[in-house]
Nucleic acid binder design. Structure first.
Lengths: 337, 337
DNA sequence: GTGAAAGCGCTAACAG
DNA sequence: CTGTTAGCGCTTTCAC
């Protein structure tokens, strides 16, 4: 292993000088500088990060705590974080938790062990108050979801408003029997979307029916969405529209409908949420709310970066614009119904 | 920051003893041990990894170089690597390259800078000989794809044999006009699948036609697959079956066929490859070759782990079993054709 | 503009 | 069984 001392010897300068040119700090005569660069080149020296980290007490690594990188929604956010981080000279340590709180905590301990300078949390439960303990000591930002009542910077879309848009649209189509497939998880987004669903119905004087609210699994799986849709559609007074809180669930609902001989959108309107890759991979293309995942990720890193640099005015609540996209899975209620 | 010396003072022992109990190395009187644990607990001490890494000259971090974590195929491999790594106390640094060779090299420099102890390469081009330079100095393993002619451990499925199975099946269905949608990338898997396609045709005395071989984009995008399928299907003497080298391409082909008024599988048989998430998210469910992505990832880490520990007999070529799955997108050629 | 030297927190001989 | 001590490779005062 070639180290700074070797370069110093080769360039006939002291280690301090090599360090200076390495970090472009302090002043070095251009001539000397040149000599050092030559030596670095010749010996193909690369600074040892462990040593630098120890000395500087930083790692230039950020931790990403995600429940499931296999989910394209998170994958896109990760990509955004990763790209932005790379631009600033940071690397991303990814910690997959499977939604397990114990593993989430283990992941966060990377911070204590100085393996990372800060963390971005992708799917905190609304009540994970233990996060505070870490947030008090380390730079942390919430992306998409967040713990209620903690003063941690966060970036997300306006889930409530987006839901309102979708619901108003469905109602404008003439639907009255509108169901929703929510989830058994406890994310703030889930809560907000359910609230948006109920509020819109109430504002229009439509009764909120228990039997029109179904729950998919915590991870929004296709299968659980399909099952929930079956339950909804098998009732005698079945809904004519289903507001799903994720695209995978919507996909499941559409498949369920088809298998029951129902046409989408002629017999049933289905809307999704997130606009992940496969919303336009087959017909009917899904009407959904597009989230700016990649940008959510980039922005999260930018804020974390600001936190790590102890910048003064850190944005605490960033809301990125979503986009409601009407496609093929929704239509006016059929009059012959 | 509480350090080992603080714990030592608190427990009334030397730093060496604390280090010993921390690493469970050397012998310490149970009683002393207990005292140390108490002190660690009390001060909530966490070892500083930068210091340990510097001293031990290792990082317990592995580097994963992937072209696109947004692609579910890679995402599943990543998950496998990550889970297995965690079990052994390793963390995964993920470097997304977008398929750019320059960024691939930049990623690999993490090795030189001692930011990671070894690397798993997920999508090397068949001719990326520059990898050798790194492989000579650092533990590296290839997953899925590999550079030809280099003696680097690799794990993948048998792409050639899998293709043979698919092709034999298509032929057994009575198809003679069989096309393929390959890709413009230079992965070994692409090459092998194309070779399997041609070889099977030849073995059955079926002419290999240039106009039955179309190319999708390097990243197997849905769009490019759809475009390639259009080209194939618009010919007057159109194929009755298309062997696609990825599921996304197959999905594109099915969509193209539908938009042209062709039914799958009645008018056109389409097969995919990989068996990613969405092969069974809508009808027709895709006939495809399932790859054990997660296990590919796990196995890759295990081998890398062996390499990093300089274990003697390291497996150089691991071939994991695939599974050919017949579903709904393939059928016997219609007799009225 | 440059060099000497003091550590960053930890591990691993080596002594006792 | 336990303690003392010399670094790991780098950055950063502080002199000159």
């Amino acid at each position: 292993m070639v180290k700074i001392a070797d370069v110093a010897r080769e360039a006939n300068v002291s280690v301090a000088t090599v360090s200076r040119v390495l970090n472009k700090k302090g002043s070095v005569r251009p001539e000397t500088c040149e000599r050092v660069y030559k030596a670095i080149e010749k010996l193909s020296f690369e600074p040892n990060m462990s040593a630098r980290n120890l000395r500087r007490n930083e790692t230039r690594v950020i931790l990403i705590v995600a429940p499931n990188i296999t989910n394209p929604y998170y994958a896109h956010i990760l990509a955004g974080i990763g790209d932005e981080a790379r631009k600033s000279g940071y690397s991303a340590l990814i910690y997959n938790t499977g939604g397990d709180e114990e593993r989430e905590k283990n992941g966060m301990d990377m911070l204590k062990k100085r393996r990372a300078d800060g963390a971005i949390l992708l799917a905190s439960n609304i009540d994970s108050m233990w996060v505070k303990e870490y947030a008090d000591k380390y730079p942390i930002v919430h992306c998409s979801e967040y713990v209620k009542g903690l003063d941690i910077p966060r970036v997300s879309i306006d889930n409530y408003k987006a839901t309102l848009e979708v619901m108003e649209y469905i109602i404008s189509l003439g639907h009255k029997k509108i169901a929703t497939i929510s989830s058994s998880n406890s994310y703030i987004s889930t809560l907000l979307r359910l609230k948006g669903y109920k509020d819109t119905l109430e504002r229009h004087g439509i009764e909120v029916r228990k039997d029109y609210i179904a729950l998919a699994g915590a991870e929004y799986s296709f299968k659980s969405g399909k099952a929930a849709a079956f339950k909804l559609l098998q009732q005698k007074d079945r809904p004519t529209a289903i507001f799903c809180i994720s695209d995978t669930i919507a996909l499941g609902a559409i498949t369920a409908a088809k298998e029951m001989g129902l046409r989408v959108p002629e017999d049933l309107t289905v809307t999704g949420f997130d606009d992940v890759d496969y919303t336009t991979m087959f017909h009917p293309y899904i009407t959904t709310v597009a989230q700016p995942c990649y940008d959510l990720g980039r922005k999260s890193f930018k804020i974390l970066h600001a936190c790590m640099n102890k910048t003064n005015d850190i944005e605490k609540k960033v809301v990125l614009p979503h986009k409601f996209i009407i496609r093929e899975s929704s239509a006016p209620i059929s009059t012959c119904d």
